[in-house]
């Protein structure tokens, strides 16, 4: 419904008629675990560069989410960069909208937008708003940014898909800190009531929020048990193990058993940049030039196993 003005706006801003479209079919099933790992590093580099260029944004959570995002965009999501509003597409809701840079990086690498354009992050006129804006950026299925709200929207999309007997699935990513919001649990109740086995929720369990460790700010206890107690099919994986992510998506997430799925991903905030890892201070801070160069150097060296 917004596709016409939206595309014009993006083109007008970026002059992308040439390389924005025409990426064509992505042979997703052929993307190997090794390629997904490589993409995850590229996404991290792009996200950190975006935040550095903007001197504003959220690197910590972008880096913790990178591996799941890579698996989704380059293996799992049935989407078409040439037709972002395709009605049968899989949906992805970034409920923790502040980590938009990692999603923008994926949209660029997947061909929704040009690689260069994402470096306009947070600038006036940019489609890459501080938090995802579905009206400005192709490939964003719902605007998010106020924590706790995106999951409800994902539930609405999943109900529509179920009622319309569509095959599409809805993937959502929430933060562990975000689960302090009561609305998350309202959404979870509804997902179970409506038997949404087309809904897959990732919890980016990086254990940190702005003010420090979630454990100290407001303990979340065992999120796996909590989702399970609410009626989700729940599993817990290492959110930086591409093997585990792929395996979980291939088996666990595909069960059509009338139950929504939750994948608690144990992650490290700032993963891949040594000085950002496990540091709440890097939740929403941009690196300076030296820090940025070190980050890129470290990322180019690959992630420690």
């Amino acid at each position: 419904m917004f596709s016409t003005p939206l595309v014009i706006q993006v083109y007008k801003y970026m002059s992308l008629q040439e390389d924005h479209l025409g990426t064509g079919v992505w042979h997703m099933q052929q993307t190997s675990v090794e390629q997904l790992k490589q993409h995850a590093i590229e996404l991290r580099k792009t996200a950190v560069t975006m935040v550095y260029e903007a001197q504003s944004g959220h690197p910590g959570g972008s880096l913790s989410a990178a591996d799941v995002i890579s698996a989704l965009y380059f293996r799992e999501l049935n989407v078409d960069p040439t037709n972002p509003k395709w009605e049968d597409r899989d949906r992805f809701v970034l409920s923790k909208g502040h980590v938009a840079p990692i999603q923008y990086a994926a949209l660029a690498l997947r061909g929704f937008v040009s690689n260069e354009s994402v470096y306009t992050l947070r600038q006036y006129g940019s489609p890459f708003q501080g938090h995802p804006d579905m009206k400005k950026c192709p490939g964003i299925d719902i605007s998010t940014g106020s924590l706790g709200q995106g999951l409800s929207c994902a539930v609405g999309m999943a109900i529509a898909g179920q009622r319309d007997e569509k095959d599409y699935r809805v993937f959502a990513m929430v933060g562990d800190g975000e689960c302090q919001e009561g609305q998350i649990w309202e959404a979870i109740q509804a997902a179970v009531k409506y038997k949404l086995d087309n809904l897959i929720v990732f919890v980016d369990n990086n254990r940190l929020q702005i003010d420090g460790f979630c454990e100290d700010v407001m303990p979340l206890l065992d999120l796996e048990k909590k989702f399970d107690a609410f009626g989700f099919d729940t599993t817990r994986i290492d959110g930086h193990s591409m093997e585990q992510i792929v395996e979980t998506l291939d088996t666990f997430a595909k069960q059509k058993n009338g139950k929504p799925k939750c994948i608690v991903c144990d992650t490290v905030k700032g993963k891949g940049v040594s000085y950002m890892e496990d540091q709440a201070a890097w939740h929403g801070t941009a690196p300076n030039k030296e820090e940025f160069e070190l980050a890129i150097k470290e990322l180019e060296g690959g992630l420690p196993v």
Binding site: R91, C153, V155, G156, I159, A160
Partner: peptide, 17 residues
């Protein structure tokens, strides 16, 4: 659960409902 109701409605609307 009003807040969830509003969010679900928004999600439905993105699909043309």
């Amino acid at each position: 659960a009003e807040q969830n109701g509003a969010g679900i409605a928004a999600g439905l609307a993105t699909t043309g409902k």
